[in-house]
């Protein structure tokens, strides 16, 4: 079993030294500036070569896979309520180029990515992955947002896909899912639960009709 989890408060931009201190399972709270970005931002930057209206590299090195529960008032002011991450595994194909373009070193999201992604994409870029907790600590994370600086590409991409620039204070809790060496908390837990999962199936006969395309190994993940 790993060491006892520690709690870290990290300020943005998060320094390489601070990232090196993180071990999987540690608890993290963020202070500073973070920006949301998911397929809307990634498609534009990576597939279409568009340049965001704000210099992400200068803004922050923390990218949050998120769509907030928010609305825009008639006078254009932004009302942000709860804030929750969206599942990250879907964005794997964008990450290599996105790391190059953005200089991001911290990805905050839901559910992590695969060990192969950490090895091939995160480790070479000196990046870590922090997972939100629950999931659905939307009210706690919403409390951690002290100010909305801007919502870029709001008109074109809509509320869910816009790039929200958030000033945050004690934003969390988050858990370190992957560290600079590419270790994964989820993969560690998957391995630890595998045996008990197999035991639960013991003696249950397989169904009479199979299905095309399904995995037959319970060691496989569906992502």
């Amino acid at each position: 079993m790993a060491h006892a989890p520690r709690t870290h408060r990290l300020s943005t931009p998060v320094s390489p030294g601070a990232l090196a201190e993180l071990a999987i399972g540690d608890i993290v709270y963020l202070d500073g500036v973070i920006y949301t970005g998911r397929e809307g931002l990634y498609r534009r930057m990576v597939d279409e070569g568009m340049v965001p209206p704000v210099d992400l590299r200068a803004l922050s090195n923390v990218n949050f896979h998120c769509s907030p529960a928010a609305s825009v008032a008639e006078d254009g002011s932004l009302n942000l309520g709860a804030v929750t991450a969206t599942a990250s595994f879907r964005f794997s194909r964008f990450m290599e180029r996105f790391f190059e373009l953005s200089g991001a070193k911290v990805i905050v999201g839901k559910g992590g990515m695969s060990e192969a992604d950490y090895r091939d994409l995160f480790v070479p870029n000196g990046a870590v992955y922090l997972t939100t907790v629950g999931y659905g600590t939307g009210a706690l994370l919403g409390r951690g947002v002290t100010r909305v600086q801007a919502a870029h590409w709001l008109e074109d991409l809509g509320i869910a896909q816009a790039v929200w620039v958030l000033e945050v204070s004690r934003f969390g809790p988050l858990l370190v899912e992957s560290d600079l060496a590419g270790n994964s908390l989820f993969e560690r837990e998957n391995r630890a639960t595998a045996e008990a999962v197999e035991r639960a199936y013991a003696g249950l006969k397989p169904p009479s009709l199979s299905r095309y395309g399904e995995t037959v190994s319970r060691g496989d993940e569906v992502l």
Partner: peptide, 25 residues
């Protein structure tokens, strides 16, 4: 346990702030 405790804290924050408990509503 950490996750369950965080969720209990989250629901208190949602009711106190009158804020959605999760942003994926």
């Amino acid at each position: 346990r950490f996750v369950l405790e965080a969720m209990l804290e989250n629901w208190e924050a949602a009711e106190a702030d009158r804020r959605a408990m999760c942003a994926d509503t």
